[in-house]
Nucleic acid binder design. Sequence first.
DNA 1: GCTATCTGCAACTCAATGGTTGCATAAGGG
DNA 2: CCCTTATGCAACCATTGAGTTGCAGATAGC
Lengths: 105, 105
Amino acid sequence: MTNQALVGVFAALGDDTRWSILAALGEGDASASALADRLPVSRQAIAKHLAVLQQVGVVEPVKVGRELRYRVIGAQLQATALRLDTIGAEWDRRLAAIKEIAEGL
Amino acid sequence: MTNQALVGVFAALGDDTRWSILAALGEGDASASALADRLPVSRQAIAKHLAVLQQVGVVEPVKVGRELRYRVIGAQLQATALRLDTIGAEWDRRLAAIKEIAEGL
DNA sequence: GCTATCTGCAACTCAATGGTTGCATAAGGG
DNA sequence: CCCTTATGCAACCATTGAGTTGCAGATAGC
């Protein structure tokens, strides 16, 4: 996963409606139409959100009959989390190093 | 950290310029003015980004003389990462459970 | 104390995006 | 086979947000 892709995932996850969609998908795979029944936004709006989520690899489409359901890819969320954790740890490591230097070790 | 705050952090991290700022802060704490010298955006734009980052707790201000430097809080990044990992793991756990059911265990 | 510099506030522009409605198209199932 | 239902595409609107410039105010240091 490139850095650019990482930022893309964060941008995709930085929207309330998309989290509503993800939450709804937690109940099981669903199509844009099905999600539109449960959420207070139009099917087209949901379709756009799903396209965004799919593009960053958080969700993937599954054809079932004539409907196109979407499934959340937990592994992608975890991969993103791992990257973020590593970055955060790096910063703390640096802080600790600076502290040691400051303390004259 | 509330769910709302979590989404806020993602939104804050979903911007290239803000990552440029974070990267620059990796070289050491710096003020908006100092950052404006290194990055191709105005001081005011950077100040706005820093305000966003501060609001979600990714960065904190440190007064040094008459300048206001900013420091990255790695722990906040790690806390966010942990939340995201947990969510991702939950999804995979559910998928595994469904798979087991499907396989007639 | 003066001055240079750093911060803060306000107004403005422009592009991106979340949302809508409307229509066209495709394809499953009775 | 037809009708129902699901998806796809396009145009459009409103809001947000990233970026800018300009000016005012505070303050550290010489």
